[in-house]
Design a protein around this nucleic acid. Sequence first.
DNA 1: GAATTCATGTAAAGCGTTACATGATTCG
DNA 2: CGAATCATGTAACGCTTTACATGAATTC
Lengths: 183, 183
Amino acid sequence: MLTHILLGFLSYGPKTGYELKSLMDHSTQHFWHAQHSQIYTTLHRLREQGFVWSEEPDAADPLNRRIYHLTDAGRDEFHRWLAQPQTNLEPIKHELLVRVFFSGARDRDEVLDELRLQRRLHQQQFDYYQNQGPEMWREKLPFSSEIFKELPFWLSTLEFGVAYEAMTLAWLDRQIARLEAQT
Amino acid sequence: MLTHILLGFLSYGPKTGYELKSLMDHSTQHFWHAQHSQIYTTLHRLREQGFVWSEEPDAADPLNRRIYHLTDAGRDEFHRWLAQPQTNLEPIKHELLVRVFFSGARDRDEVLDELRLQRRLHQQQFDYYQNQGPEMWREKLPFSSEIFKELPFWLSTLEFGVAYEAMTLAWLDRQIARLEAQT
DNA sequence: GAATTCATGTAAAGCGTTACATGATTCG
DNA sequence: CGAATCATGTAACGCTTTACATGAATTC
């Protein structure tokens, strides 16, 4: 998956590994994140596969930056991936639900504390999506001419984030209320 | 994670690998699933770690079933895990959102087809949660005396599933409407 | 007799996280 | 001058998926 995210960002223009990491942190973070270690190793693999190429770092650049470019094969691969629709329901992995599932054996107050903490965290995330999030995008993602067509889709993903957090908050409130009602 | 799910189910009583797989397929499936291969190898690992033990398959049993039991160490580990609350927001990995994010370069109709297909699939899932789901539980998870305390928590996870699908359907409808409005 | 379900495993590969490692630049 | 940011990598490990492999019992 990270493969195609990197190819996607590189389809907007050449970028360094560090820039790709920063872009992900400020855009795809809420539905796909990666450590820098994985980004660098994946870029190496993509280079071996012929999907990207990079100039040797400029000797005059003390930061030793390595700029990656998409090859034709890389662009083809990216479009091949996009053209192949997702035909299955996406399986969900949700650790908190696992914990809730097995919480019958726990102290009621212990479970309540955990749910209340999660509520706080999700409230923060909700606020972030509605306030700082969009503004951060305007500041940190400044290659505006390249992406005017994608902006509505980027906003769609943000809208999902808002809806997801609102849904989660409402669910947490119901579970907390149910537990509090028990004596 | 699978580790603690298996320990959790075994805390209700001894079970075979096959039974654990079947239990997961009918209960945790909507927030954590696993292939049988992973379940069997994880059980081997748990045995080496001393968290479970198993009788040698009964020579009289032609199906060669291997029944796993929780050890004291296994029970301790399960409770240690439960007592350690989740203090972070759970990172989300959502492939469909990655595809939407990069859909600016695609044909509008191609994107619409994909979203409509996802809408159908999520509608099915929503119906499943509301109808067959709970009934399936009553049939397939029959160790009722062991789990009367956990049932409310199991229903909580199902309630999350319903809320998640409703949220997703509403989001998909908005994205489909937005794209359809474009000419 | 064929198909489905019951039952258990191994091997290889891919994906992702965590930790280790280093060094320059910029800002306060 | 210290902290934060910029910048790139490797190694080990763990988790998960996919594919390969086998065979008995049950149901239609």
